[in-house]
Amino acid sequence: MPHIVNCEVLTHRELAPGQFRVALQGPAIASEAKAGQFGMIEVARGYYPFLRRPMCFERILADAFTVLYKLEGEGTRLLSAFLPGQMISVQGPLGNGFPIESNLTRHIIVAGGIGVATFPGLAEALIKVCDTAPEVVLAARTKDLLLCEQDFREMGCKVHLATDDGSAGEKAYASQVLERLSPAPGTRVYACGPMIMMRETSRVALEAGAECLVSLEAQMACGDGVCLGCVVESKHESEGERMIRVCCDGPVFDARMVDWEAHNFAYDP
């Protein structure tokens, strides 16, 4: 069940220009949170910005959790100004999170840009339950935007890097790297990043007979199933099921459920 908790900022560090990690003390949230879930963070005291900001839990500890984020606009700018010792209101845990199943032969994480923020916790959970470290494809526009490489390596994950400009790892898209890793039936691919990257990644995975889970993003007001603002179109035909809410039906969906044809990529953030 979600809670609204005033969390103390434990540490707050800029990892690379415009990319931050904040650790928040919040036992009520941390004790219930699962990898892939998120919190709604109140960044402003006043009304600009008015809404909370959705942020995934990067890692979940016994009584605290971390969030990895990149500067985007006013909300993340205000967030970046919080100092250790200050309190910040978080609503969570929200969303469904990743299912963790041990009966699959191979797990491949495909992260695009800041989409990586949801995966360190998933890797930890997979290691705990399945006893094998997932493989990780880390992709970003350029070298500076590749996050968590060291974290995954320390967990024992095999990491494949890719950048659009070739400044680190392969000059390739995440989906192309995945293709070369030859996913097959029995493989589960987990993707998070820009919508277009998730579409391509899921196409590669599904064509190879693998499973694919995607963690979607959408503009949110409530984060909790009420406002109906965060929907994406699903392949369900019926009027009542066509729109799926990213916040509470997801954010993690079976890629086969998402109607990629109907999605208008021109509007993506």
């Binding site: 949110m220 007001a221 109906l228 603002g229 929907v231 009027e239 009542g240 729109m243």
Partner: peptide
């Protein structure tokens, strides 16, 4: 009747 509503994006701050 059940209504699916408008196409996304439906919300902007």
């Amino acid at each position: 009747n059940v209504r699916a509503g408008n196409k996304p994006p439906r919300l902007v701050e």
